[in-house]
């Protein structure tokens, strides 16, 4: 009697795809994220209007067929500015997540692989960074080293490092005691090799989920810094800056404040839904009760 006969059939190849299609959060999140990304990419080659071209006679117009989302105080088309703003927000958030992952994941894996003093020192250092209010420190960094998109990226990125270090360490620690790691060690592989070949592939799901969350937080942080005048600098449009400029003109033209804000909310919402969906799909152990 073969044991195989009683085992359940292997899941079909498109199992993941089926699950993904059935996951509402994932699908809505993916849809929104694709739309926003598409809009940002499109802005490189085409926007409805040229935003460097100021048409003062058209300033602060309401919604119309010519300008679906109206115009600002310099006669620039809001829709075009939001499209280019998407590009900035996404770029800042992606690089900031990249910094966080690039530095944090190796640190976290190192801490998990070595344990002992290395682990203790790295984690205390982590706690130290966590004790600094992130937003305040980001404001300090951008104000001291000069406002601008690059410094905003660094400021946001620094605070992503301990987040990814913690997630990577926790994930790696749960993998290290497993038998296949023991087998790899018995085969004479060193810690670096084991981390790259066996640990990382097993924590990639965790990192991806945390990545989408930090991405969304990065977009919010960039908007906040730009609102204070410390992020992306004019004439480059950014969602936060648009809101700052709208504030004093809100009484006459409320639409100036509404659409950039909606852009932020929709983008962050999309990313959060995508993250929730990914968590459900990639790691059944983390699946939230529904």
């Amino acid at each position: 009697m073969s044991q195989d006969a009683s085992m359940p059939p292997a899941p079909p190849q498109n199992h993941f795809l089926q699950m993904a299609l059935a996951n509402r959060s994932f699908m809505i999140g993916l849809f929104i994220t694709l739309i926003i990304t598409g809009m940002a990419l499109l802005s490189f080659v085409w926007t409805p209007y040229d935003i460097t071209h100021l048409v003062v006679s058209d300033r602060m117009q309401g919604l119309s067929w010519a300008h679906p989302l109206g115009t600002d105080h310099l006669g620039r088309d809001i829709l075009s500015m939001i499209m280019i703003g998407a590009r900035n927000s996404i770029a800042v958030a992606i690089v900031a997540v990249g910094i966080g992952m690039g530095v944090g994941v190796p640190l976290g894996c190192w801490a998990a692989a070595r344990g002992g003093v290395v682990d203790e020192v790295l984690m205390r250092f982590n706690d130290l960074v966590f004790a600094f209010p992130a937003l305040l420190s980001a404001i300090m960094i951008t104000a001291i080293f000069g406002p601008g998109a690059i410094n905003a990226i660094i400021a946001i990125g620094i605070f992503n490092v301990p987040v990814f270090a913690r997630v990577a360490r926790a994930g790696a620690l749960s993998i290290w005691p497993r038998e296949f790691i023991l087998a790899a060690r018995a085969a004479g592989k060193n810690r670096v090799l084991i981390t790259i070949e066996h640990i990382l592939p097993n924590i990639v799901a965790l990192l991806l989920v945390q990545g989408t969350i930090q991405f969304a937080l990065g977009i919010l942080a960039e908007a906040g810094l730009s609102y204070l005048g410390l992020g992306t600098q004019p004439p480059m449009p950014s969602w936060g800056r648009m809101l700052f400029e709208a504030q004093t003109r809100m009484m006459i033209a409320p639409h100036l404040a509404i659409f950039p804000g909606l852009a932020i909310v929709i983008t962050v919402l999309g990313l959060n839904l995508l993250g929730d969906g990914l968590r459900d799909l990639l790691d059944p152990r983390l699946r939230r009760e529904r």
């Binding site: 969304a216 919010l220 908007a223 906040g224 609102y227 809101l243 709208a246 504030q247 809100m250 404040a257 950039p260 804000g261 932020i264 909310v265 929709i266 983008t267 962050v268 919402l269 959060n272």
Partner: peptide, 10 residues
């Protein structure tokens, strides 16, 4: 969760 507090403030 997705609403920036300063926009909500506006």
């Amino acid at each position: 969760v997705a609403i920036p507090n300063f926009w909500f403030a506006l």
